[in-house]
């Protein structure tokens, strides 16, 4: 069968995925590959891979990649971009990585308006380590470290990190999207391209938060996981543009 769309240049072919069935990472990788190709920045792209499930994102992304210590992706990205401002830099991070152990790096790189794009995969758990409570875990959500459900008294509340950084003047673009279905995926790609274009135009920091299914750790089927994003997760983390400081077209 001939594919209607050609295979993206920056998405590796003939590799086996290590991601679990129904995981959102593969979709987001593919969207990034398509977006950097369509914006013609793939040849100067460096993606910072996080500690977590996406640590070997370089197995799928056919761009230069560097590994970061847990939580330090945006510091590494700062170093890359400050040393080579002509490069196109993505810091790909999970919720625990970007919003717990790496909160300081996240907040300060955003506040400085560092000119790269952070992609935050929010699946409300620590995936790679087996489904522990993340900063984004919902109240009463059961995880392996909140066996009776997260309580505000013991664990505090789900952290809205993208809403926090969206208030910073250094942030050019911030949007929350999901990848639970074809329409959501198309909106996610558009959001990524908006963020990437903001970086290309030198406008400052951009961040796209992606509500991403983790059926295995949520103990759901992939279909149930998609539905849970619509019915529950996106109620706590509403989708939409959180900051847009791009100059308006005249």
């Amino acid at each position: 069968m001939k594919l209607k769309n050609p295979w993206p240049i920056y998405f590796k072919k003939d590799v086996e995925t290590h991601y679990c069935p129904g995981c959102g990472h593969g979709i987001v990788h593919r969207l990034i590959s398509e977006a950097v190709e369509e914006l013609d920045v793939g040849k100067r792209t460096i993606c910072v891979n996080p500690a977590g499930c996406a640590v070997i994102a370089y197995n799928y992304l056919n761009v230069d990649c560097i590994e970061s210590a847990h939580g330090r992706g945006t510091a590494v990205a700062t170093g890359l971009k400050r040393a080579r401002p002509d490069l196109f830099v993505i810091s790909y991070q999970g919720d625990g990585d970007l919003a717990a152990i790496g909160t300081a790096e996240t907040i300060h790189s955003a506040n400085r308006g560092e000119c790269f794009t952070a992609v935050l995969i929010n699946n409300a758990v620590y995936g790679m380590t087996g489904g522990q409570m993340a900063p984004t875990t919902l109240l009463s959500q059961k995880t392996t470290t909140t066996p009776t459900g997260r309580t505000s008294g013991n664990d505090g509340y789900p952290l809205h990190i993208t809403d926090v950084v969206a208030t910073f003047k250094g942030v050019a673009y911030a949007e929350r999207v999901a990848v639970n279905g074809p329409a959501a995926v198309q909106r996610a790609k558009k959001a990524l391209k908006n963020a990437f274009q903001a970086q290309i135009d030198g406008l400052g920091y951009s961040i796209i938060e992606v509500l991403s299914p983790c059926p295995v750790n949520w103990k759901m089927s992939p279909i149930e996981a998609w539905k849970w994003i619509d019915d529950v997760l996106s109620k706590e983390f509403p989708l939409g543009v959180l900051a847009d400081r791009r100059p308006k077209a005249v």
Binding site: I46, S68, T78, G79, L80
Partner: peptide, 26 residues
């Protein structure tokens, strides 16, 4: 060159990683 006061020593050494990775003396 570039001088940047980081938010922590932890952030600084990881910025060093980034700049070194693209070939800079840092």
């Amino acid at each position: 060159g570039v001088f940047l006061q980081s938010e922590s020593e932890t952030a600084a050494i990881n910025m060093v990683e980034g700049a070194s990775a693209v070939g800079a003396r840092v």
